Amino acid sequence: MAVTFDLFGTLIEAPKPADPARAIAVELDARGVETPEGWTEAYRTPHVDAPDGAEVPLPAHVAAALRSLGVEPPANTVRRAVVAAFDPDVHTREGAVEAVRAARDCGPVGILSNCSVPELVSRSLIRSAFSREEFDAVVSSVGCGWRKPHPKAFEAIASRLDRPVSELVHVGDSLEADGGIEACGGQAIVLVDGTAMAEVPALLEAGNG
């Protein structure tokens, strides 16, 4: 048995910008890239053709949106602006530390997070009550290329933990994304409908008994 956790909304809270297009525009402007008229609409429009379930890195989307408006900034400038726009203010959720400690009694522990922003998962962990060493593997959708509930996302974290997906218990806050592990043969603990983080240690112990 191995236990994996969703990150945002499960272990931590890290609010996104209220207006991502504007936040990115501010960071681009600070780096000498002016966003032209029509930027907001361009940001909201898909520009990268990707298979169902594939993750499109946000810098790639932003660069494509800018190109659609005739702007071609350096790729590293776009990436830095996107990362800065989503620089997280992190709060560790109540009971999360205890849940991860309980998971370690069951076997390897990992994080599997849907996140299109490079570096955001690692930056968020640094600012949380967790250390990177508490997790045997950390996989983000921008890193593996697939978003939960796509099977390849769960397969990626299972491979890193050296376990089959059928031996994973995944803890998250979305029935669709995190609960998707059940279609792959694993188990889900989804923190909805009254299930609280404080219950996770007992649920894991019962499942490992």
Results as ranks from 00 to 15, higher is better:
76 N>G: 05
68 S>M: 10
41 E>G: 13
192 V>Q: 15
40 T>H: 11
207 G>F: 08
114 N>G: 04
136 D>P: 06
15 P>K: 15
143 G>T: 00
167 E>L: 09
81 A>P: 08
57 P>Q: 07
28 L>P: 01
135 F>C: 11
64 A>H: 04
116 S>N: 09
140 S>W: 08
13 E>A: 15
139 V>K: 05
121 V>P: 04
1 M>V: 09
203 L>M: 15
50 A>V: 13
4 T>K: 08
185 G>Q: 06
153 A>F: 01
144 C>E: 11
188 A>Y: 09
151 P>N: 02
180 G>I: 03
119 E>S: 12
164 P>K: 14
116 S>F: 06
40 T>L: 00
126 I>A: 13
174 S>W: 10
91 H>F: 01
3 V>W: 06
81 A>V: 08
201 P>S: 01
31 R>S: 01
126 I>M: 10
163 R>W: 01
12 I>Q: 07
62 V>M: 07
139 V>Q: 07
201 P>W: 01
55 E>W: 05
50 A>I: 01
63 A>I: 04
40 T>A: 14
60 A>V: 14
31 R>E: 00
143 G>W: 00
149 P>M: 02
153 A>W: 02
143 G>Q: 03
63 A>Y: 02
9 G>H: 11
130 F>H: 02
123 R>C: 02
136 D>R: 08
183 A>D: 07
146 W>H: 02
140 S>T: 04
148 K>S: 08
189 I>V: 14
150 H>K: 03
168 L>H: 10
199 E>K: 05
146 W>C: 03
27 E>K: 15
25 A>D: 00
18 A>R: 06
205 E>K: 13
